[in-house]
């Protein structure tokens, strides 16, 4: 049962990773008892399971995921929402209004219009139907302020860090509230523009260097340096 790649080595689609009694995990497939990669990424072994952590992928909806999307269409009894996935999501009017929906009286575009951003949870999705969203929980609903940035959805776990170490550090250092949509959309809301930009910069850096080690420390250092710079600038302008 040989394996042909070491841990964290880069593979391209079609690369033969392992042969024999292994289980095909993420981004791999099995044929004739051989495990091949199906995406470009880094190899990870998990007992008998072979995974490839994809460097390039797109978001695939999963029930229970919190996502951030844009309303693209106001329909008769709901909205179509772009959640940067291959499928558009449906948000039903009855779910948002939290009372029976009256088609004659309610004007849906007054509640949510095209271009509005929403935070929502995926409540149902399978191969045959488009994902359905819900905003019926605290913290979900229309986004009213803050800034949005997009990263590759596979890198979201890196932004969270081990046991949330990365994200809680950024929150603490910048004083911003950061909401991670599992579809790769991130909402940053802070007290002022500067704080938000600082958090944004940190997230951009994580995306660029997502496959390096000791990243949390470097990000924290970067934020501190940037803060110090701003303090200096303030002092100078006062003088």
């Amino acid at each position: 049962m040989p394996t042909y790649f070491e841990r964290r080595q880069i593979v391209t689609p079609g690369d033969l990773i392992a042969e024999g009694d292994y289980i095909a995990g993420e981004n791999t497939y099995k044929e004739d008892n051989k495990i091949y990669a199906s995406r470009i990424g880094l190899v990870e072994y998990e007992n008998k399971k072979v995974n490839v952590v994809a460097l390039r992928a797109f978001y695939i909806p999963r029930v229970g995921d919190t996502v951030i999307g844009t309303v693209v269409e106001v329909g008769f009894n709901g909205w179509m929402v772009d959640i940067s996935a291959p499928y558009q999501a449906i948000l039903r009017a009855s779910n948002v209004l939290s009372r029976p929906f009256r088609p004659q009286k309610d004007d849906l575009s007054k509640v949510l219009d095209v271009g509005d951003l929403i935070v929502a949870k995926i409540v149902s999705y399978d191969r045959t139907r488009n994902p359905q969203l819900s905003v019926g929980e605290p913290g979900l609903g229309k986004v009213t302020r803050g800034q949005i940035t997009k990263i590759t959805p596979t890198k979201i776990p890196r932004v969270i860090g081990r046991k949330g170490s990365m994200i809680s550090m950024i929150k603490q250092e910048t004083g911003c509230h950061i909401l991670l949509g599992l579809n790769g959309v991130i909402l940053i809301t802070g007290k002022n523009l500067e704080d938000e930009q600082l958090a944004m910069m940190a997230i951009r850096k994580i995306e660029e260097e997502s496959h390096t080690s000791g990243l949390t420390d470097r990000i924290s250092q970067m934020i501190k340096e940037e803060k110090a710079k701003k303090e200096e600038n303030k002092d100078e302008s006062k003088k």
């Binding site: 689609p13 079609g14 497939y29």
Partner: peptide, 11 residues
């Protein structure tokens, strides 16, 4: 296609 992250059997 590989760059777009589309799952492929092989190049």
């Amino acid at each position: 296609l590989a760059d777009a992250g589309i799952p492929m059997k092989d190049l």
